[in-house]
């Protein structure tokens, strides 16, 4: 089976979408032909677009931006619709892994619908996916194995979606919050991410709060 792993993050280097794809890759089983495509910082080439039309599966991973897809990725899927209509000769199934910076995975549900609407327009088979909350935590817990600690539910969902990809079946839309209490996540985000990162830039809390 030909599977494209589409990293839809605009962030260069290590990003949370890439971490999710790395975690699911071993679950996809052997005998598949995997193609990893980054969308960060550069346009896709016509050859890449045409190659995507020959895939059996497109597995998208992307961050939620203002309740929807990041604009650079949105431009890509619009162009990909055009290519699909011209070059696609067989069924192409689409699975989606969305991560958002809030706690609640369900805030990904509109982006999931946009992907579903795109599939209908493009003649693709939408097969569902996962909306994961607290996506910004992925970088700090990337060494935690799937199915353990904060990634307990995500691990189960990843196994399920991998089985669905292998079987050619649809997965229900799974919206997941991390397996940590909300207050703990919020504390970590505020003090150990925003404030700590700002301090490294010689900024204090008053600077962060400034009005222009």
């Amino acid at each position: 089976m030909k599977i494209a792993l589409m990293n839809g993050s605009p962030k260069p280097g290590n990003n949370n979408s890439g971490i999710l794809l790395k975690k699911i890759e071993p679950l996809l089983g052997e005998g598949n032909e995997l193609t990893s495509i980054s969308t960060s910082g550069k346009e896709l080439t016509p050859d890449q677009y045409r190659a995507l039309c020959e895939m059996d599966v497109l597995l998208f991973a992307f961050p939620l931006y203002i309740d929807a897809l990041p604009s650079h990725l949105f431009r890509i899927i619009i162009e990909l619709e055009r290519y699909m209509k011209e070059y696609k000769e067989k069924e192409v199934r689409v699975y989606v892994l969305i991560n958002n910076g809030f706690y609640e995975g369900h805030q990904c549900h509109i982006a999931m619908k946009i992907m579903e609407n795109w599939c209908k327009r493009s003649g693709l088979t939408f097969c569902g996916g996962i909306g994961q909350g607290a996506g910004e935590m992925m970088g700090t817990i990337s060494n935690v194995p799937l199915g353990h600690g904060p990634l307990k539910d995500l691990g189960k969902a990843m196994v399920r979606i991998s089985e669905n990809i292998a079987n050619g079946t649809q997965v229900e839309k799974r919206m997941l919050s991390p397996n940590v209490p909300r207050f703990f996540w919020k504390l970590m985000a505020t003090h150990f991410f925003w404030n700590t990162t700002a301090r490294k830039n010689h900024l204090n809390r008053r600077d962060i709060l400034r009005k222009l």
Binding site: Y65, I66, A68, P70, I77, F102, M115, W118, A189, T190
Partner: peptide, 29 residues
């Protein structure tokens, strides 16, 4: 696809400095 066009999406993506990085809860979200 039920979204804004890419330019409008781009403008909204770039509008987050209107907000603060810190979180709050509204209607349980």
């Amino acid at each position: 696809y039920g979204s804004y066009s890419p330019f409008i999406r781009n403008v909204l993506d770039r509008s987050i400095p209107y907000l603060l990085p810190y979180f709050t809860s509204k209607n349980g979200e």
